[in-house]
Design a protein around this nucleic acid. Structure first.
Lengths: 150, 150
DNA sequence: CCATTTAATCCCATGCTATCCCATACAGTC
DNA sequence: GACTGTATGGGATAGCATGGGATTAAATGG
């Protein structure tokens, strides 16, 4: 699966278009070179995105939850939020207005790599979020899960 | 995994390029000879770096945490900080401006081997830091744990 | 069912920046 | 003292982000 790293800031033009960073486009798997999927982040004022294959992945994972469970009902609602967004000839996407509102985007968008997914933030909001996360790691002494032990 | 040792001082040219010490490049594992990853050190005014395989490793370990968990949200913010930096034909990298600012670099960079990772410092800052660390060992009477006994 | 307006898509032009490529200096080695 | 590899500098080039029209598709109203 694709791995998104690093952070990029791109402009949103008056038509609502943004270039997806070339590095992110290059990271997409061959099955999803035509575009990405985007949806409102559940707990953050940001847009969450990933390759088109992520839709399938999410669907499969939710399908593992017990049927008729509240948990499943809630999480499967995410699937309805997924927006496939195709690139134009220059590797740009058009951000749907409701996603723009959810992330309070105006004229610039920060693309943040999160491994198998990425996030799209309003610059100032992202700066604050990043500081908060850094502080949380430092103060709570969060540590990484260990690597594989075969 | 790669092992970085010793200390090297290289110049930063007006384009922001620095040669990664040949010894460090040689220490990289075959899977990551194309470049390195760099990120702001969490507790120091320095840049931390390692092989590209380190990024994959981090991503894989964070991906083990359940999605939508607070812990994952915090730790995945680290991935956005990771900058994959490719070598040019001469083994140089270009340091992103925000990393340069974080480490207050200007025209020279000190590469310090720290085993599986390395650090990049502004020369004068590094000198002070080094003295401080030596003093801490002396004053607090810090000791090394013994080696393994198989 | 057609006409008119609106919105979305495609296509090309531009400036910038990062990347490539070659050229030089310098040091250690044989 | 010639040679190899490393560090460093600078010009040329290609890729990328961005902006603006033109063309097409969709939505709305008659």
């Amino acid at each position: 699966m694709a791995v998104f790293l690093s952070t990029y800031v791109n402009k949103i033009d008056r038509k609502g278009r943004v270039s997806v960073p070339a590095a992110f486009r290059a990271a997409l798997t061959p099955v999803s070179t035509k575009g990405i999927v985007a949806y409102r982040a559940v707990k953050l004022a940001a847009i969450e995105g990933g390759g088109l294959d992520r839709a399938e992945d999410l669907s499969r994972r939710i399908d593992r939850l017990p049927e008729l469970s509240d948990e499943r009902d809630a999480l499967s609602a995410i699937l309805g939020e997924l927006r496939p967004l195709d690139f134009d000839g220059e590797g740009r996407i058009v951000l749907p207005t409701d996603l723009v509102r959810h992330a309070t985007l105006s004229d610039a968008a920060v693309f943040v790599g999160c491994g198998p997914t990425f996030q799209i933030w309003e610059p100032e909001r992202f700066r604050r979020h990043q500081e908060e996360m850094r502080a949380r790691i430092r103060e709570r002494g969060l540590t990484l899960p260990p690597g594989e032990t075969p």
